[in-house]
Design a protein around this nucleic acid. Structure first.
Lengths: 97, 97
DNA sequence: TTAAAGTACTTTGAAATTCAAAGTAAAATG
DNA sequence: CATTTTACTTTGAATTTCAAAGTACTTTAA
């Protein structure tokens, strides 16, 4: 078992780590909120949210606000658990291995 | 300025994060030590050390131990500084953004 | 009222990155 | 001395990342 064993590949990328960090403290965040907070381009953000969706770490809710489409994201139970595991592994790696 | 502004792209990958973590607490680590600690394949480890070298975050010393070649790595001053910045940014992101 | 510009995403495919298999060269083993 | 092992490096296929372009409206403005 290596020292990076519990570091989750899905959270390797800073944008995905950022999305999760936002969603750990906000019940929901919509596309534009994430886009602004992370300074990501549309296409880029879409692919990273899709990767987290595919892993079943976040889920997506599409609705209309007034006449405008709105896409918002939230963590799944699995996502929260995996994120916590990842953070713990990160701390262990950095502080004492 | 986004919430992931000081997250360093070079440290996004778990193997590179692992290499740096090892080298922050060990003055030197050789190829085989890193390979074992990180459970990486030869080619994979070589490309990640090369990436850190290219960024000037680590440097490489090639010597012979007895009759065998030995490649060992150590952090640069820049590497240590950038790693510390990264860790600080990670903590900020995870704990309060 | 309809043309132009903006919003909210999604799709696309080129570019960059990741990865392990294969290669190299010398050492150790039998 | 033939074979295997060690210590890496090279290679290029596979995967991932990225932003430009596309889609489907809505809003503004003439």
């Amino acid at each position: 078992m290596s020292i990076i064993n519990n570091i989750n590949k899905v959270f390797d990328h800073r944008i995905r780590l950022g999305i999760m960090s936002v969603l750990m403290v906000n019940e929901y965040a919509d596309f534009n909120m994430l886009k602004e907070l992370l300074a990501a381009t549309d296409g880029n953000l879409a692919s990273h949210t899709k990767a987290l969706e595919k892993a079943d770490y976040i889920w997506v809710e599409k609705q209309f606000i007034g006449r405008k489409p709105n896409t918002r994201y939230a963590t799944t139970t699995l996502g929260r658990a995996e994120f916590n595991k990842h953070i713990e592994a990160l701390e262990k790696l950095i502080n004492n291995q």
